[in-house]
Design a protein around this nucleic acid. Structure first.
Lengths: 141, 141
DNA sequence: CTACGGGTTAGAGCATGCTCTAGGTCAAGC
DNA sequence: GCTTGACCTAGAGCATGCTCTAACCCGTAG
């Protein structure tokens, strides 16, 4: 598999794949007789794992550390687990924070929606005497 | 309230607060007789909202747009709601993706943990004949 | 009166993570 | 033989979001 193929299958651009190789996230790929990278399908497992680490926002430094440990063989497995666990903690905290903010956001969105309802109502009732339009809902920030 | 106070209360650095004013995220603060920013406590509501938008990863461009709309008065409320809703969608999708990746990560961490258990067992049983240590668990990536 | 702990500005610099360019090689199809 | 498209390397450049510097100004305590 050449780099273009890997790019399509992995979602990373060829540029990014070369960059990842340069910085040690990907092992130096085997080259064919004309010097082009030639990947074994087995690289996909690692690339997809990297993709997940990226999704959960692991800094490249940590990925580099992980990649290095991985290349050092099974004796580094405890350290790898610890690295992943530390990041999992961070991500879980972040998700909790996001959900917290989402609640606040929903409240604000609902506030705007209510304002819009009031405006609509006002327009349709504009010829009648309205009973109560007091500030039942605070105007959002 | 001076900028240092606002910094402490908001969690943004004074540098960042000035930067936010420069780019229009914060309204130009009133200055006292000696030219120093003098904030009214009411700014905190907005600053904390900005902080939430930042937490949920809204790009500064969008925050700028929101701030501008906010300063243009109530007629922009629908647009503000739409802006928030669009971002909420993105965040929800992102949270789902994170949780997805966390599941995979947990599986991998559990895999490492099992390997470590096997090693321990092996060490304690090292003088006895072990019954089955076949590859019941795949070695993680 | 002077030192200190704040504040001011404009603008430079930095960390992260790519992304692109320049100038070249190679293999296949017309 | 020549074009085309995909690849190569080294290194420059870019987008985002701050963060810091230089050089200066105040007000207050000792």
């Amino acid at each position: 598999m050449k780099i273009g193929q890997l790019a399509k299958r992995s979602g990373f651009s060829a540029h990014t794949i070369r960059y990842y190789e340069r910085i040690g996230l990907l092992p130096r790929a085997h080259r064919d007789q004309s010097g082009q990278r030639d990947y074994d399908a087995s690289i996909l497992v690692w690339v997809e794992f990297l993709s997940r680490l990226k999704t959960i926002g692991m800094p490249i430094r940590d990925m580099q550390r992980y990649a290095k440990l991985r290349e050092s063989g099974p004796s580094t497995e405890t350290e790898r687990r610890e690295l992943l666990e530390r990041h999992r903690q961070r991500v879980q905290a972040h998700v909790a924070e996001l959900q917290d903010c989402l609640l606040v956001l929903d409240t604000k969105i609902a506030g705007y929606a209510r304002l819009e309802q009031r405006v609509k109502k006002h327009v349709t009732q504009t010829t009648r005497k309205r009973k109560s339009t007091g500030a039942r809902y605070a105007r959002p920030v």
